[in-house]
Amino acid sequence: MTRALLILGGVGLLLGVIALFGAPGSRGRLRGVLALATGALLVVLLAAPDRAQAALTVALSGATLAGLYVVAQLFERAAARKTGGDLRLDSDPLRRA
């Protein structure tokens, strides 16, 4: 069971990376961030050596990942304003300059 959930966490991480850099739009990228964060939290939860440490560590990691999600939203909003909504992570920003 634990191994299966760990694999699920790993799959979440992988899908998150693919969605983040492959998705053409802001919504897809933010879903990628959510998949990444969920995958990582699952791994942390299952990997912690004891339950007490797992709870606090997941809370701590969850708070930082939630913070990153909020920052990602801020970046997306600002980028949409400045780039006209056509931001793609797989294109080189130096070409825009």
Partner: peptide
């Protein structure tokens, strides 16, 4: 920043985010 700088910063932020999450796992 303008559009180009914003695009660079967003790419930088997401690369850092992936790296942080990978490091955490």
């Amino acid at each position: 920043g303008d559009g180009a700088r914003m695009a660079a910063a967003t790419r930088y932020f997401y690369a850092e985010l992936v790296a942080s999450v990978t490091f955490l796992a």
